[in-house]
Computed example of a mutant assay.
Amino acid sequence: MISALDLANLQQAEIIGVGEGNEPKRLWRGIWGEDWQSPSASNADDGYYKVSLTFAGNLAAYGSVMNNQKVQAAVITDFQTSGSGRFSYLSLFDEHFDAEGYGEANNVATALIGDRVQVVDLYVEPPFIVVKSIQAGEQDPMCCGGDFVTQFWRYQNGKLEQDTSKLQRSRISLDVIAGKTWHLMQKGSLPASKTPLSASTLKFEEGQFVGSTGCNNYSSKVQSSEGKTEIKLATIGTTRKACRSDAAQQQEKRFLKALSKVDRYGFYAGQLQLFFDDAGSSKVLVFETTKEKP
């Protein structure tokens, strides 16, 4: 949209207001880290940062929220420490120009969204930045949030401040994914945003998962409980069209097999995750939606 605020530049930007001391943290390819831990002395590239700040997927929202007749960018970052917490932050960027006219992404404000939240959606509704997420309710353990929360953030006095009068909170249900067509990513590992979409789709309507395998249409009734992300699918029914190739047929088989085992759903940076167990190993189907934001 604006060159200095595109994803490539935002993922190389400096972030303020995160962690103890609030020292600026410069991202490199979407991550900042310190205290590198390598489990293998023979491979120093194999490991992780004990403390890290990560650009969440490829999620960014654009719009005018600073009343300066320019477009700003809002992004989500996750701050991970050596403990169990994973703190999600909302950062607002404006475009800054140097004396020679070159623009760069300038982080003007950052605010904490919460601990171990799952961001469902992010968009700009001027003058607000709207964040929809799953968070722990009063009776929920931090690991397993059951509240669907909509927060409205506004840039005021040099800060991002939440308008609590507009806060919306309800118990989570599968209705959160209704009204959209979700497209399966060709790779299930995260972040998957740079991988192309497959032909398989999913929608939730009238208590069912429906969609296309790429060859056939399918449907399955889904059982779920309010405030819980555990789900159970009934037997999946499909049409009987032949696939155009052996590869498409194998893809259909793999997709239907995985979908039949799904027992939980969640979100990461706007991506829908359907979790299932396969041979004792936890795996995930990752979907994105192409639905336009409000």
Results as ranks from 00 to 15, higher is better:
residue 200 S to V: 03
residue 233 L to D: 11
residue 183 H to D: 10
residue 41 A to I: 13
residue 52 S to G: 11
residue 292 E to H: 01
residue 123 Y to I: 10
residue 241 K to P: 00
residue 17 G to Q: 02
residue 221 K to H: 02
residue 197 L to R: 11
residue 213 T to P: 03
residue 178 A to V: 01
residue 278 D to L: 04
residue 68 N to H: 12
residue 61 A to Y: 11
residue 235 T to F: 01
residue 292 E to M: 10
residue 118 Q to M: 12
residue 273 Q to N: 07
residue 118 Q to G: 14
residue 273 Q to M: 13
residue 214 G to S: 02
residue 28 W to D: 07
residue 52 S to F: 06
residue 190 L to W: 03
residue 84 S to V: 06
residue 282 S to K: 07
residue 272 L to P: 09
residue 286 V to N: 06
residue 3 S to Q: 13
residue 13 A to P: 00
residue 46 D to F: 15
residue 228 K to N: 14
residue 79 F to W: 13
residue 188 G to H: 09
residue 64 S to T: 09
residue 60 A to V: 12
residue 35 D to G: 05
residue 238 T to R: 07
residue 170 S to C: 08
residue 113 I to M: 15
residue 238 T to D: 06
residue 59 L to H: 11
residue 17 G to S: 07
residue 125 E to G: 09
residue 94 D to P: 02
residue 142 M to Y: 01
residue 76 I to G: 15
residue 13 A to S: 15
residue 112 L to I: 07
residue 16 I to C: 08
residue 168 Q to C: 05
residue 152 F to Y: 15
residue 39 P to Y: 06
residue 203 K to W: 04
residue 166 K to Q: 07
residue 159 K to I: 04
residue 26 R to W: 04
residue 218 Y to W: 00
residue 107 N to F: 02
residue 63 G to F: 00
residue 100 E to R: 11
residue 145 G to Y: 11
residue 131 V to R: 04
residue 226 E to K: 15
residue 94 D to C: 14
residue 238 T to G: 06
residue 165 S to Y: 12
residue 2 I to R: 15
residue 172 I to S: 09
residue 251 Q to D: 11
residue 75 V to Q: 12
residue 142 M to N: 01
residue 166 K to G: 13
residue 244 R to P: 01
residue 96 H to L: 14
residue 130 V to K: 03
residue 123 Y to K: 11
residue 133 S to G: 07
residue 33 G to S: 13
residue 3 S to H: 14
residue 62 Y to L: 08
residue 276 F to S: 00
residue 270 G to C: 15
residue 58 N to L: 10
residue 41 A to H: 10
residue 226 E to N: 12
residue 35 D to Y: 09
residue 67 N to M: 04
residue 241 K to C: 03
residue 220 S to G: 13
residue 254 R to T: 03
residue 258 A to W: 14
residue 108 V to I: 14
residue 154 R to N: 05
residue 223 Q to M: 05
residue 81 T to F: 01
residue 172 I to M: 12
residue 291 K to R: 11
residue 81 T to Y: 00
residue 8 A to H: 06
residue 283 K to S: 07
residue 56 A to D: 05
residue 190 L to S: 04
residue 130 V to M: 08
residue 258 A to I: 01
residue 158 G to V: 05
residue 129 I to Q: 03
residue 107 N to T: 10
residue 126 P to T: 07
residue 57 G to W: 05
residue 283 K to A: 04
residue 68 N to L: 04
residue 201 T to E: 06
residue 80 Q to A: 12
residue 284 V to S: 10
residue 95 E to C: 09
residue 279 A to H: 14
residue 197 L to A: 14
residue 291 K to Q: 13
residue 41 A to D: 12
residue 17 G to Y: 07
residue 61 A to I: 00
residue 171 R to G: 11
residue 136 A to P: 09
residue 221 K to R: 03
residue 221 K to C: 05
residue 186 Q to S: 11
residue 77 T to D: 12
residue 207 G to C: 02
residue 1 M to N: 15
residue 252 E to D: 07
residue 171 R to V: 14
residue 42 S to T: 10
residue 66 M to W: 04
residue 224 S to Q: 10
residue 50 K to G: 05
residue 109 A to G: 05
residue 183 H to N: 09
residue 238 T to P: 03
residue 77 T to W: 05
residue 25 K to I: 04
residue 13 A to E: 00
residue 209 F to T: 00
residue 206 E to D: 11
residue 195 T to P: 00
residue 130 V to R: 05
residue 87 F to S: 06
residue 118 Q to T: 06
residue 43 N to V: 06
residue 62 Y to I: 06
residue 267 F to H: 08
residue 200 S to R: 08
residue 121 D to F: 08
residue 265 Y to V: 02
residue 251 Q to G: 01
